[in-house]
């Protein structure tokens, strides 16, 4: 096929249906902004959950008066428990220092000797940081001799787990809504563009044009609309990013925005959306209106 003629044919389409073409580009732009915002939201919520989970650790307080060998034995025993990534000993002296630093000396002065027990801080592998698995580990730990008390942020973990599934669910719902809305809006606005050129399609068909010949200019148009929408959406997101980073740079709520390197992907999604919208709409039109 003659590329120059087909390009000319596509540009003619842009020209003859300016309003609906503009509507289509705006729709693609808005859909892409929604996708970018969704990505930002979901990326940040995941990051937040991960950072909270990273801080989850188990504290195992051990009996007083254990000699270094016994403490070492205990450490080795704990290491054998599945899921344990790292184990650190906090000696009585270290515990004393930490307490003193955080709460002051006054309370400690009430005691004749150091009242704080030695403990192990246990870091777990990520996949073991669930309430269910930590409880299992807790059971295993409590069966070990000389283990006195086991503490982990049970309430916090419960809260995260409850909200994680909630956030995931909301994420999923938003994703479905955005995808459906984008596809629906884009294919409908492109259908408007195509309907405005019904006569041309019909005439081409009656003069012996094959469907592929009729569709190609529309695919090129979809590509151009997607590209334009992608560039607009990238520009808007970039603008939001600049505004956000200059106005809220001191803010404690640090949001990671869609980076500049992702603008290419966003434009690519726009192009795919434009082409798919065109193909579906022309196909539907050819089926419904002709033969």
């Amino acid at each position: 096929m003659k590329l120059r003629y087909l390009l000319k044919e596509s540009l003619r389409g842009f020209n003859s249906a300016k309003l609906s073409t503009a509507a289509s580009v705006i729709t693609i732009t808005l859909s892409l902004i929604l996708i970018a915002l969704y990505y930002t939201l979901s990326f940040n919520s995941n990051k937040l959950i991960k950072s909270i989970k990273d801080k989850v650790e188990i504290e195992v307080f051990i009996n007083d008066n254990l000699n270094p060998d016994e403490i070492n034995n205990l450490k080795e025993k704990i290491k054998t428990i599945g899921g344990v990534k790292q184990i650190t000993l906090i000696s009585k002296e270290e515990a004393f220092k930490i307490f003193e630093k955080e709460y002051g000396r006054e309370m400690l002065d009430l005691y004749e000797s150091n009242p704080l027990p030695a403990s192990f801080k246990i870091n777990l592998y990520d996949e073991y940081k669930s309430l269910e698995r930590i409880n299992k580990i807790k059971t295993q730990l409590s069966s070990i001799q000389n283990v006195n008390e086991i503490v982990f942020p049970e309430k916090n973990l419960e809260l995260i787990e409850k909200n994680t599934s909630g956030i995931l669910f909301i994420n999923l719902v938003i994703l479905i809504i955005i995808t459906l809305t984008s596809v629906f809006l884009v294919s409908n606005t492109i259908r408007l563009v195509i309907a405005s050129r019904k006569k041309i399609i019909e005439t081409f068909k009656l003069l012996g044009a094959r469907n592929s010949y009729i569709m190609t200019p529309f695919i090129i148009e979809g590509f151009l609309q997607g590209l334009t929408g992608g560039i607009f959406a990238s520009a808007i997101i970039y603008f939001l990013l600049v505004v956000y980073s200059t106005r809220f740079s001191q803010n404690e709520i640090k949001l990671d925005f869609l980076g500049f390197e992702y603008m290419g992907y966003l434009t690519l999604i726009g192009i795919i959306l434009g082409i798919l919208g065109s193909v579906f709409s022309v196909k539907r039109f050819l089926k419904a209106h002709i033969n």
């Binding site: 006569k199 005439t203 003069l207 094959r210």
Partner: peptide, 24 residues
């Protein structure tokens, strides 16, 4: 169905409403 375009290329049609394209 795929042969229909071939067939139509062998026929010249002058339509009642001309079907001239106003964008060219």
């Amino acid at each position: 169905k795929k042969e229909i375009p071939e067939l139509r290329r062998k026929i010249g049609i002058v339509f009642q409403d001309f079907k001239l394209l106003n964008d060219r």
